[in-house]
């Protein structure tokens, strides 16, 4: 069976590139090189710490912002501008459109992250003049960041499939913030009783759990990351993204275009 997913994905990527999304890399490079030069004055230990913490945090935040801002428009903008008419009147099934969009956005972010990663390593080399084995941990952090992007993309796409871009942005950002504190939310849940406990536990399962993806502070201190955690996080991100995408497909499949 022929599928149009790769075509839709690559067109989504092309759109992002033509919308000059990759220009964010310039801002990122400026931020990082500024930081590297400034902390160059301080002691060697702390400057490595600063570069890793600041660099990876920026990779993650820049990416999340891009994921949300592109993601929220992926479906709703096409409905609004009616560019979808000539796509969906071709042998393209609606779910393929959603999945294609998801891969296109995820691909955009991966490429973006790749360039940012080069920047982080360059800055690291600039301050410490060599690489040590522990620096390989940065790859794990980057991998987790990409997993995090998958979740954010799928959520932005989900909101995009039923609400306006502005509202979707609000939803997606709130979920990102809540998701970053979801362990606290689950702690709340475990402290509650009765019905509110059930509700809180349910909510805690539905909101994404970003806390487990944030290992930046610990790898900056050269703490190893358990293989188990890498495995579980991978599975979690895949299942969560699958869940959000299924939701998006369910909604979009039943939606009248404007």
């Amino acid at each position: 069976m022929k599928t149009s997913i790769p075509h839709i994905a690559s067109n989504t990527f092309r759109e992002a590139v033509r919308d000059r999304v990759l220009y964010n890399l310039i801002a990122f490079a400026l931020l990082l090189s500024g930081a590297a030069i400034l902390v160059g004055q301080i002691s060697i230990e702390i400057e490595k710490l600063v570069v890793i913490n600041l660099g990876l945090t920026a990779v993650s935040l820049f990416g999340v912002v891009i994921a949300i801002f592109i993601g929220i428009g992926l479906v709703s903008k096409e409905i609004e501008k009616r560019t979808l008419y000539t796509v969906l009147s071709r042998p393209v099934r609606r779910w393929e459109f959603i999945v294609g969009k998801f891969f296109g956005l995820a691909g955009t972010l991966t490429v973006n992250t790749f360039f940012m990663a080069i920047g982080v390593f360059a800055a690291l080399f600039y301050v410490s003049h060599r690489f040590v084995r522990a620096d390989a941990l940065i790859f794990v952090a980057l991998y987790f960041i990409i997993l995090e992007f998958l979740i954010v993309c799928s959520l932005a796409l989900l909101f995009s499939s039923f609400s306006s871009p502005l509202l979707s942005a609000v939803f997606a950002f709130s979920l990102f913030v809540i998701g970053s504190f979801s362990e606290d939310l689950r702690n709340f849940a475990s402290m509650a009783h009765g019905v509110s406990r059930w509700l809180a536990t349910g909510a805690a399962c539905l909101v994404p759990n970003f806390s487990a993806f944030n290992v930046i502070a610990s790898i900056a201190h050269e703490q190893p990351v358990a293989v188990q955690l890498i495995l579980q996080n991978t599975l979690y991100a895949l299942f969560y993204a699958a869940m959000a995408l299924s939701g998006a497909v369910l909604i979009f499949e039943h939606r009248d275009l404007k």
């Binding site: 805690a204 996080n233 869940m243």
Partner: peptide
């Protein structure tokens, strides 16, 4: 949707234990 919700909740539990 239901399967992945169940799976992600289960993994979440595992991650918390980890």
């Amino acid at each position: 949707l239901l399967l992945s919700l169940a799976a992600s909740s289960f993994i979440l539990h595992r991650v918390d234990q980890l």
